[in-house]
Amino acid sequence: MKSPIIEVKQLRTSFQTDDGSIPVVNSIDFHVSPGEVLGVVGESGCGKSVTSLSIMGLVDARTGKVEGEILFKGDNLADASEKKMRKIRGNEIAMIFQEPMTSLNPVFTIGQQLTESLRVHRKWGKKQAAVRAVEMLKLVGLGRAEELLKQYPHQLSGGMRQRVMIAMAMICEPELLIADEPTTALDVTIQAQILELMKDLNKKTDTAILMITHDLGVVAEMCQRVIVMYAGRIVEEGDVRSVFQNPLHPYTVGLIQSIPDMRVKKDRLYSIPGNVPKPGSQNLGCQFAPRCAHAMSRCISETPALTNHENGQKVRCWLYEDGKGAGIHDSAIS
């Protein structure tokens, strides 16, 4: 196995609010190796975007605080200077954002925005950068590329904009690509095309990808390993196949159950009861306990640790204390 390109250790990102400093991402550990696609799943509000912004060093320093280690090629980005981060951003680590409709600047042309990283990081001239931009646009499946360079974002559809965003992120051949729900805002056919495209790029360039999504279908399609986040913490981690076949944490089980199954027509779709707690609203015990069908008294008072299980799977749940319990599979859920 290749040594990881990025290693996140005990990452904790907190925001200053009226009720004091509240952690939104809490003690997160993970690593991604070159050529690998790591999936990060979890419901809305569980801290996926904050995790990626922390890596990019784009958490607003006035209200937010990033602690822990983010080791990228040996350097800790968590305490790197703004100048150093600027050299890494868009060059060695690039990011695709969640909102394709608003993530492009409305008053600059696609060409200006696409070539900017090259001009900033590689000091390329306009012409040279434009040639490369056209190549990239073709690579992401956009025709009439030369013409497109002169157009403005409002002249493009959502799918086209997201392709431009991908081209923009990949243009400097980053070693790590953070894709924050790159397809959520798109319709299903375009979604499939974009995923296919990212998979291709990943194979061709050996770029490591951190694939953030709340869609398990995307994970199954794209990733080798997956981490499941809940309320700012990792609750389960492992190979995609093991996690899908043998989900351990009741939350993961719930997530997998709530995937609509085309073959079976149900009267109602399954959904996990309740909502993700507001950050900071619950400090003691397992964050998922209030929504968990298997909660015990201990779950409310003590926070479980992330422990190793079979097949390299990890889980944060009292049902699997010391890796010995057979957990929920004893108490028959279905």
């Binding site: 703004e82 600047n105 409305p106 600059f108 900017e116």
Partner: peptide, 26 residues
């Protein structure tokens, strides 16, 4: 505060340019 300014910063653009070009023109 808008998303496209975050995009510009994510590209590694200097804050001065983010402010005086990307933001100001809008």
């Amino acid at each position: 505060r808008s998303d496209y300014i975050r995009t510009a910063r994510a590209k590694g653009v200097k804050m001065f340019w983010v402010v005086y070009s990307h933001s100001l023109k809008n």
